[in-house]
Amino acid sequence: MILIPCPWCGSRDAGEFAYGGEPTPRPDPRTATREQWRGYLYLRNNVAGWTTERWYHRMGCRRYLTVQRNTVTNEVRQP
C-alpha cells in the first residue's frame, strides 16, 4: 500500500483515505454551457506521470488534502 503524506497526520497508508482524483474547477452554474458543465462532470486529464490530486483522510483527521503523485511510479510528494 502506498503512503499518502497527510499534512496533519504524517504519512499514512492510502487505505485510510478516500481518493478524490484530479480537482476540476466548478464552472459558474449561472453561465456554464452544457458542454462546459459536462466537461466538468466527465473529462479528466488522466495523466501518465505527475498529477495533482485530492484525497480525503477518512480514517484520520477528516481533512481534504492535495498531493502530487506520479501515476506511473506511484511516487508521491507534497505540492
Binding site: A18, Y56, R62, R63, Y64
Partner: peptide, 11 residues
C-alpha cells in the same frame, strides 16, 4: 458526511 465536508473544505 464526506459530501458535506468536501463542499465545506474545498469549495
Amino acid at each position: 458526511w464526506e459530501w458535506v465536508e468536501s463542499w465545506l473544505q474545498t469549495e
